[in-house]
Design a protein around this nucleic acid. Structure first.
Lengths: 346, 346
DNA sequence: CAGAGTGATGTATGCGCTTACAGGCAGCGC
DNA sequence: GCGCTGCCTGTAAGCGCATACATCACTCTG
């Protein structure tokens, strides 16, 4: 910047003004400065700018590291063991990037590794004006500290820190509505719920919704999912479907999966076993991923507005940046039931 | 930081050392400092740190804004008009994030809007140690200037600036191999190529490969694609397929699409028209998106290592950061043919 | 027990920018 | 001609940290 100032015969203040507030500089002077900047290959330092102005123009996102980065990514394996988590994060990233851009922010993303003062989380926190955190990616105590200095919004999961803005989708309500549909509209009675990791708040909330619907309908309310898988992937879903088929006792007439990936895997498995869907068995998912529309039979599911989750997160951050004293909010984004072929609709 | 120093009775230098170089501080002192930091909610300023150390620990990515951020995102529309571009960007983001993380970097992403000194590109450039640019997202002249100050790697597209590192996938070679397969192994002769936007370097390179294969086999070499679509989406692919069917003259025996999205759309359209795939018509795509494996018939395509593209971009940046004098390279990442049902294999 | 050596800590400077404030310089009415 | 008003530009003081160098308290060696 000093070089640019010298070369164009002005002071550094003028150079700064050319970038910060072009109208306050005479057009002729401005041109001289820009010309010099071009010749010198001048790139304003975001660091210095941020330091002086106490703002970065960047928002952040911490999400779980969906895969070991050291694991060899073999080209042949496109089965996507970690598809579920990745799709989820991708959508949030998209949503946030969009909304951030609309507000003139860039987006800094980092999958959180283990904590410690020199973790990526700390790096993100130090370089942004505010950021969003996917549940269970950052230790609560770190968040506690960081959130005293800048806006943080928590996505999904329980609201661990009550002075933070918090955003969830209506997992329970959605699953409840879906289950009600199966019971009341299709007359199904023997529903099997396939959950995921007990640590997944989303999956657990969905199970809660499932239970509520069972209770509403006067059906027995299960204590725990009929089956839990670890990964919530297609492969696990397929295995779960087979396990349920092979189990003794009366065969269920519907399999309710905690997400779409598993449900899609189940559809394949049922096809192999020559169990007709939906005639012999209804199958449902949760999420509304693109694939759910494309598989045959198309999958009845609950559309989750993941991208909006990201967009809304940015909105909350921007709001709080504008008014730091605003009361913390906890929003639940609505979901919508997609009735399709796999439950007997459409 | 001054507050932390005061509270823990040390100098700011010691506080700095606690974070930068913990071992150089007595364990007892270190604890006192960390304790004070916790109490005060201290978050080191990335800006100041970056300013003083002349490095940010952040890498950047500029990608095309795949959709107007002001457009209403309606929940019901999950047909994904912009799926193609988004998937592509998502994968690159994933790849870069992974590799960046492995090297201890965070990733700053921004879809490039129009240029100008205050564009997001400038913001990104000022806040990172190096960054990657997807072809045609940043004006060449801007890149020219920026690349004099920090490492830039160009992804896909032609190599517009020859002192930059440059990364492409083997579009032409892949399409050539695919086309050769259709001609030689399946004995097809009337191939129709459906391209996309003439401005898409990828699509054009693929068409080049297609032409080469035609030439190799002694078939007539088309001047231009039999059809071009604007968006390269499923909907466009479906329309293209119908157009080709309805066209007078001899019906083709293979439709070669410039990407998977269009090919998948075409599969649906052909199904509706009761054209059997692959018996009556072979269909191929390009990209190897997950969906290509899942549709029925599964889609013969060329697997493109998009994620590796992102990873490799980071590797190049890291290398150049380590050795700024390294000769600029231009790498072509290999692709692989996925022979599946839609061409008559598998 | 002096002097050298070692490890822990403090001092002070500068990283490149923003911005309040202070000129300088026209044009204006009187 | 004088003081005023506005517009443009320059001056200078930080922003919060890293780090070279200075300092200090010790331990060790002979």
């Amino acid at each position: 910047m000093y070089d640019v100032a010298e070369r164009s015969g002005v002071s550094i203040a003028t150079v700064s003004r050319v970038y910060r507030n072009p109208d306050s500089v005479r057009a002729q002077t401005r041109e001289r400065v820009l010309e010099a900047a071009r010749e010198l290959g001048y790139v304003p330092s975001g660091n210095a700018r941020g330091l002086a102005s106490r703002t970065t123009g960047v928002l952040g996102l911490c999400f779980p590291d969906y895969a070991d980065p050291d694991a060899e990514a073999d080209a042949e394996n496109d089965s996507g063991a970690d598809d579920a988590a990745m799709l989820y994060s991708d959508q949030i990233i998209r949503g946030m990037e969009r909304a951030a851009r609309r507000h003139g922010y860039a987006l800094l993303i980092a999958a959180s590794l283990q904590g410690g003062p020199e973790s990526l989380v700390a790096k993100v926190a130090g370089r942004v004006d505010g950021f969003a955190v996917l549940a269970q990616t950052v230790p609560t105590e770190d968040l506690e500290v960081i959130s005293r200095r800048l806006p943080v919004v928590m996505l999904a999961g329980p609201r661990e820190i009550d002075h933070l803005d918090h955003l969830v989708v209506a997992n329970a309500a959605g699953e409840r509505e879906l289950t009600r549909h199966l019971i009341e509209d299709h007359g199904l009675r023997r529903l099997a719920f396939v959950g995921g990791d007990p640590d997944s708040p989303d999956a657990e909330a969905r199970f809660r919704g499932f239970r509520e619907a069972c209770g509403d309908a006067g059906l027995p309310v299960p204590e725990a999912p009929d089956l839990r898988t670890g990964m919530m992937t297609r492969a696990e879903g397929a295995r779960a479907a087979e396990t349920l088929l092979d189990r003794g006792g009366e065969r269920p007439d519907a399999m309710v999966f905690a997400n779409d990936q598993m449900a899609v895997g189940a559809l394949r498995a049922l096809e192999r076993r020559e169990v007709r869907v939906p005639e012999d068995m209804a199958v449902t998912g949760f999420d509304g991923i693109p694939l759910s529309r494309i598989v045959r039979p198309s999958l009845t599911t609950v559309r989750q507005p993941i991208r909006q989750l990201g967009e809304q997160a940015v909105e909350l951050l921007v709001q709080r940046l504008a008014d730091p004293s605003r009361e913390p909010v906890s929003l639940e984004l609505p979901v919508s039931l997609a009735r399709r072929a796999s439950c007997g609709c459409g």
